[in-house]
Amino acid sequence: MHLDGTVLRGPSFEPVEGRVVIDGGEIVSIEEMETTSDDIILPAFVNAHTHLGDSIAKEAGGDLSLEELVAPPDGLKHRLLREASRDELIEGIRRSLQFMESTGTGTCLEFREGGVEGVRMFREAAEYSDLQSLILGRETIDAMQIADGFGASGANDADFETERTATGEAGKLFGIHAGEVDSSDINAALDLDPEFVVHMVHPDPVHLQRIDDSEVPIVVCPRSNIVTGVGRPPIAELAERTTLALGTDNVMTNSPSMFREMAFTAKLFDLSARDVLRMATVNGARIADLDRGLVEEGRPAKLLVLDGNSDNLTGAQDIVRAVVRRAGPADVKRLVL
């Protein structure tokens, strides 16, 4: 099969008029040629941090603090998760996965509550989804063993040494929240040598130096941080030191739309469109050691096709900027997974 249009090629997302040729699920060539197609071809998004189990509680607790919302074991989300039926939880996750596909996401990294049963419910919800979900189990080592890794809540909740050792021995991903509310849990989180850290809103200079030395990747979730009132991550300082990826975080507080996350991030932090698009694609893939997130020969064909002639995108003078700051679900023409 082939896709014609403007191809955002390689790590620079250089707009090239031409054709992407796909065979056996792989990009075999990118041919520069004249085409009548207005389509825009780019990598499918990688949402590097989600909590889709919370899909049963959208916009709940809007006036609560972060601790009141999500702190284990008695934060609002945990109470609502305990009260919901198994069928309700599975259906909520399934609908969020469906929404993510419709908004261009091809891969997500999910921090999944509920132990072993939570992981099983997620897999059941994802059974008919083409989106690749990497599930990081929480709460127990048994959950990690049947998942793709372990997602720790934060170093102030427990030391997680045992879980980190077991995850490493299993050759799986270990991610942890850190620096979301304040800096008190950052050193302990970094001591665990995680594959990645989520949030990092409040690093002190000593933490920035440790991030520089270790180059531990960081997933930032700016919309979530603003909604929960914890502040803004110092993205410019972090980007100088390590790989940054984007996540949409908790479905309670934000839709899992990478279009919204990209536009918000680009405008709030005045980042270049290319930097933000890397955060939403190849950087998230690198965190999970996945060979995707770029339109290049030899890469898996995980692609998003936008209608460049939509009412929203027609007339765009800078295509990459328009994709990041302007595009939305109505512009999605096709998701190739």
Rank of each mutant, 00 (worst) to 15 (best):
L3F: 09
V7Y: 15
L8M: 14
P11M: 11
V16K: 10
D23G: 11
G24C: 08
V28N: 02
T36A: 15
V46T: 13
N47S: 00
L52K: 09
S55N: 13
I56M: 10
E59D: 09
D63K: 07
V70A: 02
H78T: 12
E83N: 01
E88M: 07
L89G: 09
L97Q: 09
E101P: 06
T105R: 02
T107L: 11
E110L: 02
G114L: 01
G115N: 00
E124V: 14
E127Q: 14
S129L: 05
G137Q: 00
G149Q: 10
E161L: 00
K172E: 02
F174C: 13
I176Y: 13
G179L: 02
D182A: 04
S184M: 11
I186S: 01
D191T: 00
D191H: 10
D193P: 14
V201C: 07
V206H: 09
H207L: 10
C221E: 12
A239L: 04
E240M: 08
L244M: 04
L246G: 12
D249Q: 11
N250F: 08
V251P: 12
K267D: 12
D270K: 08
S272E: 01
S272V: 03
R274S: 12
L277W: 10
R278F: 03
A280C: 04
N283C: 13
I287A: 11
D289G: 02
D291K: 13
E296L: 02
V305L: 07
L306A: 01
L306F: 04
G308C: 14
A316C: 02
D318T: 07
I319L: 15
V324F: 00
R326G: 13
K333H: 14
V336S: 09
